[in-house]
Simulated assay, not measured.
Amino acid sequence: MRQIILDTETTGLSVTEGDRVIELGCVELVNRQLSGRHLHCYFKVDRDSHPDALKVHGITREFLADKPTFQESVAEILAFLKGAEIIIHNAPFDVAFLDNELRLAGYGALATHVQGITDSLLLAREAFPGKRNSLDALCDRFGIDKSNRTLHGALLDSELLAQVYLALTRGQNALIAEEGTDGSDEQSVSAGPSVCLDGLRLKVITASADELAAHEQVLAGIDKESGGNTVWRTVQA
């Protein structure tokens, strides 16, 4: 099972007003393990970032001046994403921007190139209804170190989201193990170390006569209150 954790940074919040993707970060999971493969791209665009966006990511137009455009990088991007399940936090935002970039580059929407798109924000809201479920909040909730996150960055945020996603979905481990062909995959979930119980001898403690008599009195009282319809009396009869 191949999954790609993906994040973008943009010049602003509105595709319809011409904002563009300026950074893309992806990390790969294979069978719920970080594979070590990642993709990180910056893109030259013909507009400045909104001041509010600059406060978030700090990526200036001057920094991007010598970077390739999205169109120049699109083949590499699609090759990396092809056939994988894509995990994005607040997916509609990133997908709208990526669909726009793909359209401008002459390609179909993101969903046509990948196996599926999963919104980790929706997973978090199901797990923690009514709670704050931003990436920062989830890192705090799961004890994930985000001390290096002074500014948002697509690759760093993807790496953090990968840890959050695995923590959010850890209950799926058993289901993933069942999907294996023979259960011999080294990355399958372990059932834990086996313990030999051959030498274990359990002590058997029997009830005393007084305890049996007291128990019988309790059963008789319950039987009386039920009008003689208790299950144990019916079975005995």
Results as ranks from 00 to 15, higher is better:
residue 1 M to I: 09
residue 1 M to H: 12
residue 2 R to V: 10
residue 2 R to T: 11
residue 3 Q to C: 09
residue 5 I to T: 03
residue 11 T to L: 03
residue 12 G to A: 08
residue 16 T to F: 09
residue 21 V to R: 02
residue 22 I to N: 00
residue 25 G to V: 04
residue 26 C to Y: 08
residue 28 E to D: 10
residue 31 N to R: 13
residue 33 Q to T: 14
residue 34 L to D: 04
residue 36 G to T: 11
residue 38 H to L: 09
residue 39 L to R: 03
residue 40 H to N: 13
residue 40 H to S: 15
residue 42 Y to H: 13
residue 44 K to I: 04
residue 45 V to K: 00
residue 47 R to L: 10
residue 47 R to K: 12
residue 49 S to M: 09
residue 51 P to S: 03
residue 51 P to K: 05
residue 54 L to F: 11
residue 55 K to V: 10
residue 57 H to I: 10
residue 59 I to Q: 05
residue 59 I to M: 06
residue 59 I to K: 05
residue 61 R to T: 15
residue 62 E to Q: 14
residue 62 E to G: 01
residue 67 K to C: 14
residue 69 T to G: 12
residue 71 Q to E: 15
residue 72 E to S: 13
residue 74 V to I: 13
residue 75 A to T: 14
residue 76 E to S: 14
residue 77 I to K: 02
residue 79 A to D: 15
residue 80 F to P: 07
residue 82 K to S: 14
residue 83 G to K: 07
residue 83 G to S: 08
residue 85 E to V: 14
residue 90 N to H: 08
residue 93 F to M: 10
residue 93 F to A: 13
residue 95 V to K: 11
residue 95 V to D: 03
residue 98 L to G: 04
residue 102 L to E: 08
residue 102 L to I: 09
residue 103 R to S: 14
residue 103 R to V: 08
residue 106 G to K: 11
residue 109 A to E: 12
residue 109 A to F: 02
residue 110 L to N: 02
residue 113 H to Q: 13
residue 116 G to A: 12
residue 117 I to Y: 08
residue 118 T to S: 06
residue 121 L to N: 03
residue 123 L to T: 04
residue 125 R to D: 07
residue 126 E to L: 14
residue 127 A to Q: 15
residue 130 G to Q: 03
residue 132 R to T: 13
residue 134 S to I: 02
residue 134 S to K: 01
residue 134 S to N: 02
residue 135 L to D: 00
residue 137 A to Q: 06
residue 139 C to E: 00
residue 139 C to S: 07
residue 141 R to N: 03
residue 143 G to K: 05
residue 145 D to R: 03
residue 146 K to H: 12
residue 146 K to A: 10
residue 147 S to I: 01
residue 149 R to T: 04
residue 149 R to P: 01
residue 150 T to I: 08
residue 158 S to A: 15
residue 158 S to L: 00
residue 159 E to M: 11
residue 161 L to A: 02
residue 163 Q to M: 03
residue 164 V to L: 05
residue 169 T to K: 03
residue 170 R to G: 00
residue 173 N to M: 06
residue 176 I to W: 12
residue 181 T to Q: 10
residue 181 T to L: 13
residue 182 D to G: 12
residue 183 G to D: 12
residue 188 S to K: 10
residue 191 A to G: 15
residue 192 G to Y: 06
residue 196 C to T: 15
residue 196 C to H: 09
residue 205 I to C: 10
residue 208 S to Q: 04
residue 211 E to S: 13
residue 212 L to G: 04
residue 213 A to P: 01
residue 216 E to S: 15
residue 217 Q to M: 14
residue 218 V to K: 15
residue 219 L to I: 04
residue 225 E to M: 01
residue 226 S to G: 01
residue 229 N to H: 11
residue 232 W to T: 13
residue 234 T to D: 10
residue 234 T to F: 08
residue 237 A to N: 15
